[in-house]
Structures are given as C-alpha cells and as structure tokens.
C-alpha cells in the first residue's frame, strides 16, 4: 500500500513537473532569502560573532544579557513612547481623511487621495532635508511661527522649541514626521474598509431614522474593526522595526532619546558587529510583537448591533 502510494506520488510529481518548475522560482527565492536568513539568525542568537573571527557558542548568554542592557531597555521604552505619541493622531487623521475622501460629491477626489498618499512614497532623504529645515532651532519654520505668535499675542509667550536638540522633544519631532508620512497609507486602507461596507446598511438605517452620528457609531465603526486591527498591527510592527525615519532625522539622538528598537538593532549589528546579540534581541522582540499581534487579532471580528 505504502509503496503503491509512493509510486503514485512520484508519478503525480512527474506528471505535474512543469507546474512545479513554473512555481519553483518563488520557493527557491523564498527559501534562500526568507527561510535561510531566519534560520541563520536563530543560530546566531546563540553564538558570539563579530563577522570576522569564528563564532563561539554561548548558549543563552545573549538573551540573558538583554535583561541587563539598559540601552536595549531604553530603546524599547522609546519605541513604545513614540508609538504612543503618533499612532492615535495618525489613526484619527487617517479616518477623517478617509471619510472625507469617500464622499461621492467631493470634486477632484483622485487628486486629493494621491496628495494624501504622496508622503509615504516620497524618498526619506528628501523628507529628512525638509523636516530638518522645519525643525531647525535657529531658523526653522516651526520656531519662526512660534516667534510670530509671540509677537502677535500680548500674553502666553512660548520659548522656541529645540525640536531636534533636546532629549525632551526628539520623540515628539520624530512622531510628527511619522504622522505626516504614514497618515496617507492608513487612509488608503481605511478608505478600502469604508468602501467595503454595504450601502444598504446605511439606507436601511436612514429609513429607520438613524442620524449621521448614530450610523457612524452603530454601522461604520463596528464594521471597520477588522481594518482598524490590521492598521494597528501594521503600525505596531512598523514602530518596532522603523529605521529610516529615525536614522535620517535624529540618528537616535540626542543621547539615545529617540533610538527605537530598529536603530538599536542596526547599532548592535552594523556599528558594533555584535551579530549574535543583535539576533537574540531581534528574536526576543519578534516573539513579543507576535504575541501582541495575536492579542490584537482577538478584536478583529466585526461586531454589529
């Protein structure tokens, strides 16, 4: 029976060989550039390796070091703090824009949607130049506006803000950039979510006498829940592994006040050549992000009254 099965399997493989050949490029590339690096990184997390000298097995030492590493702890704290500052306003703005741009009567809808989406496809280097000029303590636009405001108001003077110079403000500065950059991306996802809600629900609600707010509260928000959860998970992962925004704007500074986890990994691996330690940190945080994502996914199912 077993032999017959194997022969049959072999026969089937041979019969379908062209199909397998056609789909093989994906699997080859996936194994080479997806599975292999993951497995190698797992191996690295148990060794000490600088890339130049032979790796030495250290067991769980890399993981244990993580618990005592205040740089690691600070980077996690910064990641959470930045996420806490930017995600809520970004979601609110994205939802607001999605609502506005979902309106049938809005003129130039395509152009407006493109404009809102544009920041997230703009090269980061260009963004960095513009934002570093906006944030400049001495001659930046933001501080210029503060000066103008001070001149116009007889009371409540505000001191110019050292946006990128101060440990207190660097996270806010990064967060403002993140809101600006990623609102469009989330807006597109939310727009797709809004367009997936059957119009009949709104028509029925209107006939039943439900007003705009009631429709929002009882139809839109509950049915948008899967979209919100998806955006939430993407933002969570993005916040942890974000690199370019922080790197080009503050390089994690001043001090390490804006060093998030992504930059911490970069520093460990490519500045300090501690590949084993960086892999251990990456795996530890990946497990944390995975578990948190599972918890968030529990709210995924849409609820309607």
């Amino acid at each position: 029976m077993s032999q017959k099965y194997h022969m049959s399997l072999r026969h089937r493989l041979w019969q379908n060989r062209y199909f397998y050949i056609f789909i093989s490029p994906f699997f080859t590339i996936f194994i080479l550039f997806g599975i292999y690096p993951l497995a190698f990184s797992l191996y690295l997390s148990f060794v000490k390796w600088d890339g130049l000298t032979p790796a030495t097995f250290v067991g769980l030492e890399n993981f244990l070091t993580l618990f005592q590493d205040d740089e690691f702890h600070a980077s996690l704290w910064n990641t959470v703090a930045i996420g806490a500052i930017y995600i809520a306003p970004m979601f609110l703005l994205a939802f607001l824009f999605a609502q506005i741009l979902n309106s049938e009567r809005l003129p130039l809808r395509g152009l407006l949607r493109t404009s809102v989406f544009l920041p997230c496809i703009t090269p980061m280097v260009v963004i960095a130049i513009v934002f570093s000029l906006l944030y400049s303590a001495e001659s930046g636009l933001f501080n210029f506006l503060i000066k103008v405001g001070n001149a116009m108001l007889p009371w409540g003077k505000i001191d110019p803000i050292p946006w990128l110079e101060s440990e207190r403000w660097s996270k806010v500065s990064v967060s403002i950039l993140l809101v600006w950059r990623w609102t469009g991306y989330n807006m597109v996802l939310m727009l797709a979510g809004l367009q997936g809600i059957p119009l009949q629900l709104y028509e029925a609600a209107t006939i039943d006498g439900a007003g705009r707010w009631r429709q929002m509260w009882h139809i839109t928000l509950p049915l948008m829940r899967p979209t919100f959860v998806f955006c939430g998970i993407m933002s969570l992962i993005g916040t942890f592994y974000m690199f370019d925004e922080v790197f080009v704007l503050t390089r994690g500074g001043p001090g390490m006040s804006s060093t998030n986890f992504g930059l911490f990994l970069f520093n460990q691996a490519f500045t300090d050549f501690r590949f084993g330690y960086a892999s251990a940190a990456a795996y530890t945080v990946a497990v944390g992000v995975f578990l948190t994502s599972l918890i968030i996914l529990r709210w995924r199912k849409p609820r309607t009254d």
Binding site: F243, D244, F270
Partner: peptide
C-alpha cells in the same frame, strides 16, 4: 508604517 527594517541601510 513601513515594514522596511534596517537591511539596506549600512555604512
């Protein structure tokens, strides 16, 4: 938020 992490940013 971008999923891009740090690969490609070196040097």
């Amino acid at each position: 938020m971008s999923l891009r992490c740090f690969t490609g940013f070196l040097g």
